[in-house]
Amino acid sequence: MSHTRNTGPMRASARCGARTRNGETCRAPALRGKTRCRMHGGTAGSGAPVGNGNAVKHGYFTSEAIDERKFVRAILIQSETFLRELPAGSLTNCNPDVSGTPESAPGTDSPLPRLTNAGK
């Protein structure tokens, strides 16, 4: 190259300064009138949208939802302990109309469907 480069204004411009992944500061020049470079939010349209629709709450962590989940969990634990404390065989003949025939669905003559893994 026969001419010298004029890099003075480029080197004198303000730097971005955003933290990079390796923990250092970004050394790219900040955009005119901005404090960040084009890669770290200096361009128009970068950043969160107006009104920030991304921050809408879904309600999973509201106090009501947390209390409801705690209540359901407590009921399940209570019912599990109750069923474990029952004497063995006390739930076998709960239906007083057991005549040795398979149970049928209410209002039909067909037996209740049984869940099996045969269809998989």
Rank of each mutant, 00 (worst) to 15 (best):
F71N: 12
T92Q: 04
A65L: 07
H58A: 07
I77H: 14
G33V: 11
N54Y: 02
P29H: 08
E80R: 12
N95C: 08
A14Q: 14
V50L: 12
F82Y: 11
T25M: 12
F61I: 10
K70Q: 14
K57E: 08
R15N: 05
F61T: 13
V56T: 09
A44Y: 06
R84T: 08
T35S: 12
L91T: 09
R73E: 13
L31V: 01
L76P: 04
I77T: 08
R36N: 05
R32A: 14
C26F: 07
T43S: 03
E64D: 14
T92E: 04
T62I: 01
H40I: 02
A48G: 02
C16T: 03
L86Y: 09
P49R: 01
M39T: 07
R38L: 10
L91A: 06
T62Y: 03
R36M: 04
A44L: 13
A14C: 10
E80G: 15
R21C: 11
S46A: 08
R27T: 14
T62K: 03
L91R: 06
G53S: 06
P29F: 08
C37Q: 01
A55F: 09
R73C: 09
N52M: 01
S79E: 13
T43P: 10
R27A: 13
A74C: 11
G23K: 07
A55P: 02
Q78T: 12
A65R: 15
